[in-house]
Design a protein around this nucleic acid. Sequence first.
DNA 1: GCGACTCTACTTACCGGTCAGTAAGGTGTC
DNA 2: GACACCTTACTGACCGGTAAGTAGAGTCGC
Lengths: 212, 212
Amino acid sequence: MKAEHDARGDTRRKILDLAETLLLSRGFNAFSYQHISAGLGVRNAAIHYHFARKTDLGVALIERYRRRFARFIAAQAGLTPAEQLERYFTLTDSYFQRQQICPSGILSAELQTLPPEMQQAGGLFVAEMRAWAVDIVARGQADGSMQYAGSAAGMGALMFASMQGALQLARFDEAAIASVKRQLRQLLGLAAEADNTNNSNNTATTHEESQQ
Amino acid sequence: MKAEHDARGDTRRKILDLAETLLLSRGFNAFSYQHISAGLGVRNAAIHYHFARKTDLGVALIERYRRRFARFIAAQAGLTPAEQLERYFTLTDSYFQRQQICPSGILSAELQTLPPEMQQAGGLFVAEMRAWAVDIVARGQADGSMQYAGSAAGMGALMFASMQGALQLARFDEAAIASVKRQLRQLLGLAAEADNTNNSNNTATTHEESQQ
DNA sequence: GCGACTCTACTTACCGGTCAGTAAGGTGTC
DNA sequence: GACACCTTACTGACCGGTAAGTAGAGTCGC
């Protein structure tokens, strides 16, 4: 009766999940189909069955990120700007704990060696992330909960860039993320958080997708 | 009388120079000895003669950066913190113009795939860069020329992280660097610069080394 | 002032391993 | 029997790295 009927699309999802881990920890150029096939106990050609070229896999990963990020944003529509900021910080922490960097970081670092399709999809993803960062500080400024010099566009760009940078630099100095987060709160005129915003289930970023 | 006596050590320097360009534009994993040998018109084995393993080449590149950065700092010992900040910004611009990202960015992004020797050398380099950033804002705060919330350590870390991030994100959106620079000046309480701090010769970063 | 030797800086010609990608065949399910 | 989902078996390109040979310039004894 076959305990594992391997619900259709299961392997494809496993490939994406493992490829995502590899992408964020090693980069696109530094993982191979062999890494994936060895990790999943299937053959090289099985990966090619689902993703004919590595480019297809890369694009699928980025598109999945974009959908996930859209849901991440939508899921916290009701929160205050300050709360949304903390969610953003929590997301960054969860990358760090897995020894990963954020997708935008690896995509921009490797950009010139990536296939054009991935460059294009990456551009859209990065624009969406920056827009969200700008939106948070713009609303925070508008409702008076955040005060800072300069423009919302500048502050959002700074926030996005500094968190991406901090996540990378944390590989050398693990204090980098906490240090940058603390400084950003100060510059936004926010009370310093306990820095353990431990709502015990921060599942927002790890949800799996049923989608192909 | 041999027009080209190829002053001893010349090839070695050419290898380092081309490898540096490749490292900052493509990353360490995405360039090969073939790229270098083809670019210089020599054979693969000639590169191995000077740098037996790719790891040796990578470490040599980082060590050269560290020496260059030390001279970069020393050369502007007399300047005010604000002037030093602008030099830092100019350095970032010059990377962007060459379609490169900063060494610390590529090293941290690829860190987990780099040989241990490079990880170690990279760690020292990154620590030196961050220390310099902290030093600038600490002295700026001390002499009253910069005012900002939070600590000098936090502000320096933020500055370093955000410039590294901005340089990467500029590959998708070229306005990122100017935007982040402008915001940093605002947050430091500095008057907005003309943003073309064009002292026509900003050679500080491009100086060649005679050293091996 | 010249042959013998040494050293640097390469060259040619390889090596085994890994890469992404392909062709053809098998197997279980509807 | 059509189809989804694999497998086995392979290809050519490229990877970092190595062994052996060589051209030329400098150095030495004599």
